[in-house]
Design a protein around this nucleic acid. Structure first.
Length: 433
RNA sequence: AGAGGUGUGGCAGAGUGGUCGAUUGCAUCGGUCUUGAAAACCGACGUACCGCGAGGUACCGGGGGUUCGAAUCCCUCCACCUCUACCA
């Protein structure tokens, strides 16, 4: 959520930022917000005055009563009736204006950082860096959805039977590979100074609002109505919300957390030919890194997080590229995002496996996550960042496709995983179920 | 899940309808004293909104209500504790 004070003081900058995102009604929304804010403040001044008056009266009544001046007390009590009516009216008005402010504020996405490239949509994202040669696979190289069936390591039909489309079973070497990747990612993050946490997988609405999934993406999360809880779409939600309503000391920075969780996404309306196999799932595994940072150091932290993710991809031997998202493709809450994509050789496609973002104060504002600044009177909003390190399914897709042997009998695994899997390649075996 | 209890500022812990945003202790930060430190003493010490300012308003787990006035009374939800039941 944008800082109201900033919108009030720099409306033209805010409009400029929103325009960069190609938000159509940028100016209208900002004006609507400022008007509601103006009304709200005016109403509050009047209301506060009325309340002050009533407080004074009440105190006087107390004093009359203490002095046994019953007649005076009674008269004063009767005199408050009109005041009370006015206050009730004012409160109603104030609530309305507050809601207008709040509702409008919820509609406004974060402002893009100056360095975010111009652009309207995903096609205009900037390739900032590329690493590794694209694999030269023979014409008959198989896409991962065929490989997982041949090697019997991931079973979609079994998942359909038990849950539905997009909820696969991982089996045997496939399950083991999954577990190996999770451990590898967690260990690497721990080495980089992140504290590992295992968070809850269901969160309340306050947490959803805190990190910005609500109200923006209400329909994208699974919801358990009996208990009013949402299944997390990413570990970002529970991990960042640890710091909701927290006031830090400057010496607490940086706070670095890592967590592995399954992620649940309804992905309503986003299914098509592009999303075969592991490319898009309702439930998938992800290791997420989160940092809470001092505003002066958050962009340095963003680079550090991006570099960390690059390191993982390099150790896995996957060709990848780094995209700077253009303003139009930036997520609702983000001020700056790097997407990392790996090349999946048989599909011949780039697959997004990580998104590393700086939210600046956008989440912190909703979270009320602040720190005591030594040189300032007021407490200051911290910056929040997070990144996937990494999301598993597409990594698995790329590993399988890029490392399949020419004879189709095995799939080699990168050496960093051997200690975790206990085997160096996946081989065709006796069918198991 | 049933019965009972509890929920106050960083922590501990008063306050049960009236000048209470809240006594006090500890912690923290300034100062005095000291060669330095400790001790002692003095002072400061929650958050947010509004206001140029003096200052005002709101917040005692969340929400609602009663009242001229609520930390205090009522309703409701939530969390924690104890006992009982159940369970990985």
């Amino acid at each position: 959520m944008l800082e109201l004070q900033n919108v009030r003081e720099n409306p033209e900058l805010v409009i400029k930022g929103l325009r960069k995102r190609h938000l159509d009604q940028a100016e209208a929304l900002v004006n609507q917000l400022l008007e509601a804010d103006q009304n709200r403040r005016q109403t509050q001044v009047q209301l506060d005055r009325l309340k002050a008056e009533l407080n004074t009266q009440s105190k006087n009544i107390g004093i009359f009563k203490a002095q046994k001046q019953e007649n005076e007390a009674q008269a004063a009590i009767e005199a408050t009736a009109a005041l009370k009516a006015q206050i009730k009216e004012g409160e109603e008005l104030l609530r309305n204006f507050e809601k207008q402010v709040q509702d409008t504020l919820y509609l406004l996405p974060n402002l893009p950082h100056d360095q975010v490239p111009e652009g309207k949509n995903a096609e205009q994202n900037l390739v900032a860096y590329a690493h590794g040669d694209l694999p030269q696979l023979p014409e008959n190289a198989r896409p991962h959805w065929d490989l997982i069936r041949d090697f019997d390591i991931i079973d979609f039909e079994m998942g359909v039977k038990v849950s539905g489309a997009g909820f696969p079973f991982y089996k045997g070497a496939g399950a083991r590979l999954q577990r190996a990747l999770i451990s590898f990612f967690l260990d690497e993050a721990t080495k980089a100074g992140y504290l590992e946490v295992i968070p809850p997988l269901l969160v309340n609405a306050d947490s959803g609002y805190g990190t910005g999934q609500l109200p923006d993406k209400e329909g994208q999360m699974y919801f358990a109505p009996a208990d009013d809880l949402y299944l997390i779409p990413t570990a970002e939600v529970p991990i960042t919300n640890i710091f909701r309503d927290v006031i830090l000391e400057e010496s607490d920075f940086p706070l670095k957390r890592v967590g592995y969780t399954p992620c649940f996404r309804r992905e309503a309306g986003s299914w098509g030919a592009e999303v075969r196999g592991l490319n898009r799932l309702h439930q998938f595994d992800k290791v997420e890194i989160v940092q809470i940072q001092h505003p002066d150091h958050s962009y340095q932290a963003l680079e550090e997080m991006k570099t960390h993710v690059q390191g993982l991809l390099e150790k896995l031997g996957l060709p990848y590229r780094v995209l700077k998202l253009c303003a139009g493709d930036l997520g609702f809450t983000s001020a700056f995002t790097y997407d990392l994509e790996v090349f999946s050789g048989a599909q011949k496609r780039w697959l997004e496996v990580s998104s590393v973002s700086n939210f600046e104060t956008f989440q912190a504002n909703r979270l009320k996550l602040r720190y005591r600044a030594k040189d300032q009177k007021k407490n200051v909003l911290a910056h929040t960042l997070n990144g996937s390190a990494l999301a598993l399914p597409r990594i698995v897709a790329a590993l399988l496709e890029n490392n399949q042997s020419l004879d189709g009998q095995s799939i080699a695994l990168p050496s960093v995983l051997h200690a975790y899997t206990g085997f160096t390649k996946i081989e065709k075996k006796v069918k198991m179920d």
